[in-house]
Design a protein around this nucleic acid. Sequence first.
DNA 1: GCTTGAAATGTTAGTCGCTAACATTTATGG
DNA 2: CCATAAATGTTAGCGACTAACATTTCAAGC
Lengths: 187, 187
Amino acid sequence: MQDTPRGRRGRTRARLLECALDLFEQQGYEQTTVAQIAGAAGVTEMTFFRHFSAKDRLVVEDPYDPVIADAVAAQPHTLAPLARAVAGLRAAWGQLPEPESDVVRRRVRIAAGTPSLRAAIAANNAATEQILVDQLVADGADPRSARVAAAAVLAGITAALLDWSQHDGLTLTGAVSAALDTLDGAR
Amino acid sequence: MQDTPRGRRGRTRARLLECALDLFEQQGYEQTTVAQIAGAAGVTEMTFFRHFSAKDRLVVEDPYDPVIADAVAAQPHTLAPLARAVAGLRAAWGQLPEPESDVVRRRVRIAAGTPSLRAAIAANNAATEQILVDQLVADGADPRSARVAAAAVLAGITAALLDWSQHDGLTLTGAVSAALDTLDGAR
DNA sequence: GCTTGAAATGTTAGTCGCTAACATTTATGG
DNA sequence: CCATAAATGTTAGCGACTAACATTTCAAGC
């Protein structure tokens, strides 16, 4: 009895999301109006904003913050901030539930081709960045280095995600893993 | 006879910028309306948009793209993508004209406290990122690694800038230099 | 079955960022 | 002094988003 869609309520949200992704893929994100999405879902513009606080929330999803802090904390404190952040994210990734690549890919693909959405993703990463910073600092890292390392790692992973979404034949996990290697200084 | 403000024209742009920064600092970016800015500068809303294509352009400035490509190209191709990007930016920074810290700090400080502006900065970095990627790839780097490295380095430097703007007693150059050290794997 | 109360949706009206089409002023320079 | 172009103004409108208030829907208790 968590938040599984039931009754008519949960359905509306799902319908809005589905209609929106369809429209975005057909005619582009910027060209699609909220009124169109609402209309396609058989609902009012007002209702749309009751389910999604903003248009970009259809594409940008909140990250898995809680797992990350723990994973970073578990890394050896002898590493430099960047290396520790990388090691932490590598560990965290293993613990995350394998996402449904289909939906994720659709969303990320749309985001990849829309500058304003890429910006929205970056803004969304701010929360995760803060968690990363807090954990690194709590483990004795210099605050300034921690912030730089956290921002760099998240941006690197995000870049890998955007790239992954546009080329078939790559696994999500593989793309992220390769990105972490690069951030670790690997060729 | 270049673009030195003269007559009444060049003054308008400067006045808009000045009034805007004042208002932003007094009441915040989001709370300040374009109409207010225009009014304070004794001009119409329409005229504002003739000088700045969007509200955020008052704060987010275009980067110094051209220098970067050359600097990256000059780095030894034996380095890994991340290391080469860091070395390139380090070299590029030395060639850039020392900016007027006052104005820069004002703008960055405003951006640091405004999520939507941080997003705008990220969007603005996209162009520079592409240049970095192109140069790294041209020098033989793997495209995927190049993208990750470029995104990471730019995000790291941006994070350092935002941090620098909020703490007195730091030099811009020092902050950037320290960020590059962190990205290089230094403690 | 009927009522009740809350959740979901609708209506209306408005703000703000931004654009377009067209008119008007202002400032040179020949 | 006049022609021409740059700079500014006017009006109208779109799209994202918000607020205040009215209405429908639906499940639970009597």
